[in-house]
């Protein structure tokens, strides 16, 4: 019974690791995959292979994947919402459904790594203090995107949003020069 559950888990993990868009997620999935597979090796009576899998899967292969991921450019996206005081899962899921998923898949298609940070701080404070590439501020159906004027990826994003407009949301781009911020 135990080994059957773990074998099914291995199939599920391998499928998910192949099918996620974000590569850093699949590094985590592959870490769990190596954990589970080393236990399955133990169940089938191969402790030598299990030790090798444990050491290589937990330390060395993770490092090699991360070194490969260093080549990607990370695009830091802050997401703030005027209507919420506290972050719950529902808030994150709603934000993703409305705008974030579209932005994310755009950057994934451009071969970059989007990193989304959810925060409840006031967007003016984030604008003044933090170091970011894109700031999304949502107020009901009004969405403002702040970004650097020199970043040509944002121009492409704006063109993409103009071509495929969202019916429910009103999007607006605000760009500032690089010197303005500090």
């Amino acid at each position: 019974m135990t080994e059957k559950i773990f074998l099914i888990l291995m199939v599920v993990l391998a499928f998910i690791a192949l099918n996620t868009q974000k590569l850093r997620r699949s590094v985590i999935y592959l870490g769990i995959f190596s954990l589970v597979s080393s236990f399955v090796y133990l169940l089938y009576g191969a402790p030598d292979v299990a030790i090798a899998e444990a050491v290589i899967g937990s330390a060395i292969s993770t490092v090699l994947y991360l070194v490969a991921l260093k080549k990607y450019r990370v695009f830091t996206i802050y997401y703030t919402n005027a209507n919420y005081n506290q972050i719950r899962d529902g808030y994150i899921i709603r934000g993703r459904a409305q705008i974030l998923r579209e932005v994310e898949s755009f950057f994934v298609r451009k071969e970059m790594e989007p990193q989304i940070i959810y925060t409840t701080e006031d967007y003016k404070k984030v604008l003044a203090e933090e170091n970011f590439d894109l700031l999304i501020h949502q107020d009901y159906d009004q969405v403002r995107l702040y970004g650097n004027a020199e970043d040509y990826q944002l121009d492409a994003l704006e063109a993409h949003m103009c071509e495929n407009p969202n019916e429910l949301l009103k999007t607006e781009f605000i760009k500032f020069e690089a010197g303005d911020k500090n």
Binding site: Y78, N85, Q86, I87, T119
Partner: peptide, 8 residues
């Protein structure tokens, strides 16, 4: 440190 905040 990444800036994930909950309470206002």
């Amino acid at each position: 440190l990444s800036g994930y905040k909950t309470g206002k």
